[in-house]
């Protein structure tokens, strides 16, 4: 049940999603990936992508126009 931070701050679409995909491959089931972005489309794309693959994901707007994402790797 480890928590991984991934720095995607200021990265352009779709680099955050590509980085997250890569990072997830090296994670164990039950691990949580924490992401933070100020890019509305990026946040949306990651949520849609995660839901497609039935990963658990929560999206929270922590400040004006900044989104905090927590993705749980529920399966391989």
């Amino acid at each position: 049940m480890a928590r991984f931070q991934l720095d995607i701050w200021g990265e352009m679409c779709p680099i955050p999603l590509l980085k997250a995909q890569k990072k997830l491959k090296g994670m164990n089931i039950g691990d949580i990936l924490v992401l933070e972005t100020e890019h509305s489309c990026t946040s949306r794309a990651i949520v849609v992508w995660a839901k497609d693959r039935a990963y658990e994901i929560t999206e929270q707007e922590v400040a004006n126009g900044i989104w905090h994402l927590e993705l749980t790797k529920t399966h391989d």
Partner: peptide, 21 residues
Amino acid sequence: STLAASQARFRPIRHRKFVVS
């Protein structure tokens, strides 16, 4: 649209590579 959602902010370029791209 951004302002109505209280999501407005200036989002500067944070990496030099993006200036070029």
